[in-house]
Amino acid sequence: MAVVYQKSTGLTDVEMHYCPGCTHGVIHKLVADALVELDLLDNTVGVAPVGCSVFAYNYFNCDMHEAAHGRAPAVATGIKRVLPDNTVFTYQGDGDLAAIGTAEVIHAAMRGESITTIFVNNAIYGMTGGQMAPTTLVGQKATTAPLGRDQAHYGQPLHMAEMIGLIGGAAYSTRVTVVDMPNMMKARNAIKKAFQMQREKKGFTFVEVLSTCPTNWGLTPVQSLSWVKDTMMQEFPLGVFKDIDKKE
């Protein structure tokens, strides 16, 4: 018998604290597998955010920094400028990246920092208990938008992958999801490609992953997968918004 799938060696043996069925765990696995498959893990420094994935520093089996809320791309910049030949990534939620840390990620992209940002978009603030995020859908309920996000009051969700795609220093920007097997394979390839491009020093690489938050969406884990497909993907289309390898 040959092992066709087992726990990634890119992850530590620490049990993850995520809620049952939260796809943060799936995304961790894809990142860890990509680093192992590209033989980058031993030379990687990751940056954990503030959000549900704050403990990512305990889960990835590589050197890690825990950054202040939203500052991961600035922290990663500092690391990368000291260690230009190491692989440096940030792993951030939507509150972290698209609200408090918008400036940091945009400017890391502008400078073309040779880092990879994994952006976990679950359309809500998970850790603090389900408050509205910049990515919350119009009409979607949150604890600070109990009647649903009101467009007249809060406008419309931020589309980060598209925004990053417009920035000169960005080499790659894509939106993927992990809620079914074909999409998970695409997500896996996207993450691998991002790290590969970083290794080739091509510029800033950005992978937005549509993820679930069953706990704060008030859905079961399985229903949450469907909600991403049926509802979230209507607002946030999957696709590649920039890829300098594909020059038209």
Partner: peptide, 17 residues
């Protein structure tokens, strides 16, 4: 290995002959 890939908590190991 669909199950193992999907499991967020790396619970599952899959072997094939």
């Amino acid at each position: 290995a669909n199950c193992a890939r999907m499991c967020p908590d790396s619970v599952i190991t899959v072997e094939r002959n």
